[in-house]
């Protein structure tokens, strides 16, 4: 059984799939501030729904971002520790690749997600191959929408960034997929139609050197 989850967006999305990629349980909750609270119970619930235990897991697939760092790390550290103690492989997948796979269009697509600070994480993809896979042509990168509008221009844009910056990105579609889906992640990894990388975070930004302020609450 393959466990998949992504915490790179405002959504916490979890799915369980058979080795063939058939989904047996899944859930998605949108709450940008509670990834740390939501993920573990969602995994436990998925396991219970499917009637399996963690020992039945044969692999873990996790979105590696890019995405807001704090939430992103919740998914990655959960995947890594579970993989370590269960002795199973952890497959990382670029979260923008997951979104690209969620597009049902047969055209090349652009993916744009919310990078906060009025910026987007973005990437460009080729049209889908026969097996549904899409080749990433550019990105992932982080930029202001106006700075990359000319690159994305004329392409359908998938992801939360398309909703937030519809004007700047000249988005016309009205059925935009906003958040990555763990179902698509699970199926894509099970059927080897998503590119797998190491479960390392795609930060794309250097850490802010903002010091902790006030009387620090740590000893």
């Amino acid at each position: 059984m393959l466990l998949a989850f992504d915490t790179s967006s405002a959504a916490v999305t979890v799915a369980l799939a058979t080795p063939a990629g058939e989904i047996v349980a899944s859930s998605t909750t949108v709450d940008a501030l509670r990834h740390g609270e939501l993920l573990a119970p969602a995994i436990a619930a998925a396991l219970e729904t499917a009637g399996v235990t963690p020992r039945d897991l044969t692999g873990i697939a996790v979105g590696v971002g890019p995405g807001p760092f704090t939430g992103l790390r919740v998914g990655l550290v959960t995947a890594r520790t579970m993989g370590e103690v269960l002795g199973i492989e952890v497959s990382g997948v670029c979260s923008l690749d997951i979104l690209a796979r969620q597009s049902t269009l047969t055209l090349p697509v652009a993916v744009a997600t919310d990078a906060r600070r009025k910026e987007i994480y973005w990437a460009l993809y080729d049209g889908p191959a026969a097996d549904g896979s899409r080749r990433r042509l550019e990105g992932p990168a982080v930029d202001k929408p106006a700075e990359v509008a000319h690159v994305l221009s004329g392409l359908p844009v998938i992801g939360r960034g398309a909703v937030l910056y519809a004007d700047a990105l000249n988005v016309v579609a009205d059925d935009v997929v906003e958040y990555p889906s763990a179902e698509v992640l699970a199926t894509g990894v099970a059927t080897r139609t998503l590119e797998v990388v190491a479960p390392d975070p795609l930060y794309l930004r250097r850490p802010d050197v903002t010091m902790s302020s006030g009387p620090k609450s740590v000893l």
Binding site: G36, L39, A40, I43, A44, P54, T70, R73, V74, V77, T78, A79, R80, T81, M82, V85, L86
Partner: peptide, 14 residues
């Protein structure tokens, strides 16, 4: 949060 999520990953798996 990194520690708490890691601890949950352990507790859940075990």
């Amino acid at each position: 949060l990194v520690g708490v999520a890691a601890a949950k990953g352990l507790a859940l798996s075990l």
